[in-house]
Nucleic acid binder design. Structure first.
Lengths: 271, 271
DNA sequence: CGTCTTGCTGTACGATCGTTCAACAAGGTC
DNA sequence: GACCTTGTTGAACGATCGTACAGCAAGACG
């Protein structure tokens, strides 16, 4: 008889590689089984490892889930940043590249939506998810801010545009700009959501058209800021591109559910 | 010593009342604890009953959850329908009433969003949830369809407008109308989502303004269908209000995540 | 007050959950 | 080939899950 070649029962991997594999298995399980897929045994089976290995690379399950959330989040943001950077320096081309990246894989993926939805459900009750979101969300915010700022060149870059202020007694032009920015962000999210829910309803290119039409209507309703500086100063000095960008990035809640800090969660005795 | 008044240890309730109470407790638990709140013991404690009672009124947990989903779904739709009906017969007033109802409680509620998100996460993997959605979603669809049809009077009500068709070689007017309807729906969902995530960013009344501006741009970009019939026939006969309504109700996926029937879910051996 | 219906309780059960940990072995080093 | 480091295994634990069911009792009825 031939000597039995002692086939290894498992292969050791560097921690970083194994961690990445476990994160990938977590996301895959979420796609397949939804929230029920978030169990140690399901994930370890998907990754082809034993149950104990997860706690060897992650302190606990919540940390693994948060790492998975951080992964898809940063993967998306990095993809968007790369697409915009690849588009060159023309503001219009950069915005178009962003929109086309936004409305194509891997962003525009029904499976991905199913994964996002589970994370959203966890968000309000998991500090780790909140932290992972906050850390990766910043990249998305600054990307949008930069694109809008260069698309609608302002007179002066006022960095101190305070977040959250609502110019109640402002001129109509300012109000329209702020609303338009909010609406644009809603359009991005809403179209993305709708397509993922029912991909047959419209083509991604049509979503890009819709968004560009909205952008065009922005420039049309407030051309004084981008073209004629003198007119802008007359209408309202604070109505600059950076303010629009600020309002927009405030409004653009993107995929992640931000922590609202709203009404204090009732903390009655549970059970 | 005074005779101990034999205080009843529990109070019997008619099945329908108790069922409703259990449904209410389920929603309340979802608001408080998210997905973790969906346990028999948590819900029964919230309702102030024993663990066994739930299975006395519902065959199993999934049926209770589906009933809860059906409840908030139909509650919302009925509220919208009532608001529109209260507005009278003017199409514009009815649309405004709808928008104001959409952008106010109980629709516009961050707690409610947290509940919706959990249901969305369950949708793809629960036939019961899918059925509950399908049954209640019809009311929302017909409400939107009716409002748009009366807002943009068509030449002839073509009921057989097939769902899902995409006039690729159609005239530009038709494409714009379809896209506009899709965009309007995205605007509704996106604004609703954004406000629930970050209520401080804009006021509900501003969201109403945004939507009405979009509606106005609909009438502006394609007035031929609503005003001059002769022009419409020349441009494209199929571009009617009812087609817009059909396209819109296809696009308006509302809150619920529709079953996509997309790629067949990989059914590998689990565990 | 006695009787009957049935809404309701609460223990029990098996399954599965996340986590722990002692033992194993893969694979580099000498 | 012996040794050592450490990635990996898998049984075991207590907690919690959804469900079943035998028995209790609330409250209507005669």
């Amino acid at each position: 008889m031939a000597r039995a070649a002692p086939k290894p029962r498992f292969a050791r991997q560097p921690p970083q590689v194994r961690r990445q594999a476990l994160i990938g298995a977590t996301i895959e399980c979420l796609k397949r089984y939804g929230h029920e897929g978030l169990s140690i045994r399901t994930i370890s089976a998907q990754a082809g490892v034993s149950v104990g290995l997860i706690n060897h690379h992650f302190p606990n399950k919540d940390e693994l889930v948060a790492a998975a959330y951080r992964h898809i989040n940063s993967e998306l943001v990095l993809g968007m940043q790369a697409a915009v950077a690849r588009a060159g320096s023309s503001p219009r081309a950069r915005m178009r590249a962003f929109l086309e990246a936004w409305f194509s894989a891997p962003s525009l993926d029904p499976d991905a939506l199913a994964v996002w939805v589970v994370f959203w459900g966890l968000y309000r009750h998991s500090r780790l998810i909140q932290r992972a979101h906050r850390e990766t969300y910043q990249g998305y915010v600054s990307l949008l801010r930069g694109m809008l700022a260069e698309l609608l060149p302002q007179r002066r870059a006022s960095v101190n545009a305070r977040a959250g202020r609502r110019p109640r007694s402002a001129g109509t032009a300012a109000v329209d700009l702020r609303l338009a920015a909010i609406g644009f962000s809603a359009l991005l999210d809403g179209l993305w959501l709708e397509w993922c829910l029912e991909p047959g309803t419209f083509r991604p290119a049509e979503a890009v058209e819709l968004c560009e039409a909205w952008i065009a209507s922005l420039s049309r309703s407030a051309p004084q800021a981008s073209r004629a500086d003198s007119q802008a100063r007359v209408r309202r000095s604070a109505t600059t591109g950076s303010e629009l960008a600020a309002a927009m990035t405030e409004a653009a809640t993107h995929h992640g559910v931000r922590h609202t800090n709203r009404a204090p969660l009732r903390r009655t005795a549970r059970r």
